[in-house]
């Protein structure tokens, strides 16, 4: 059964990706509405190169892009990036915490850690997207988003440059929707609260 999606309720969109995921973001970001009224958190696997990612992505959009800071309050319309070499956790009071615990799936930041804590904090007000990657990270977290009533989207493995990560999520039955980059862009824009259901 197709899950009923009430488009204009989501407060947080969280996107995870690994190998091949950055390319998707570079395509998605320029096409996101610039009056975005939900918050976005990006958890990307990468090696070192701390601030480079923030610079690279902020060039692609007029929206504010910044590295998530310790105990910072999550605000709508801002794109937050998980810093390198820490797990990014989301607290129930909708602030960030950083965590320097063991790597998960050889990764820090781990997508699972952010997805799971975001699912706890936001429940049905969370939308999660899992992109291309060669790693099993993210699938379990995405499932928890779904179980908490959130909306889950997986990049179409046929389109993803590395299909392993999306495939893992699909096998876990964690995906509400399997979409191409184009479709993801369309859906993310429709999640904006400013769009009333009648105008669709």
């Amino acid at each position: 059964m197709e899950k009923e999606i009430f488009m204009n309720k989501y407060e947080l969109l969280i996107i995870g990706g690994s190998a091949g995921g950055l390319e998707v973001l570079l395509e998605v970001l320029p096409q996101l509405r610039t009056d975005l009224d939900y918050a976005v958190v990006l958890v990307m696997h990468r090696r070192g190169g701390d601030s480079l990612l923030t610079g690279l992505l902020s060039d692609k959009t007029k929206l504010a892009v910044k590295e998530a800071e310790e105990k910072e309050a999550i605000r709508p319309g801002v794109i937050y990036i998980a810093p390198a070499d820490y797990h990014l956790l989301i607290e129930n009071d909708k602030t960030f915490s950083l965590d320097y615990s063991e790597k998960i799936h050889y990764s820090r930041p781990a997508i699972d850690a952010s997805f799971e804590t975001a699912a706890e904090a936001y429940g049905p007000l969370l939308a999660g997207v899992l992109l291309s990657g060669a790693n099993a990270d993210g699938a379990e977290g995405l499932l928890q988003i779904k179980q908490a009533g959130g909306l889950t989207i997986v990049q179409d493995p046929d389109e993803a440059s590395v299909s392993y990560m999306p495939q893992q999520a699909i096998e876990k039955n964690a995906a509400d929707k399997i979409l191409t980059t184009r479709q993801i862009i369309g859906l993310l824009n429709e999640l904006n609260h400013s769009i009333k259901p009648g105008n669709r």
Binding site: L89, E91, N92, E116, T117, A121
Partner: peptide, 9 residues
């Protein structure tokens, strides 16, 4: 303590 980390641990 921050709750998210404790809970995960």
């Amino acid at each position: 303590y921050s709750k998210a980390s404790l809970k995960r641990r």
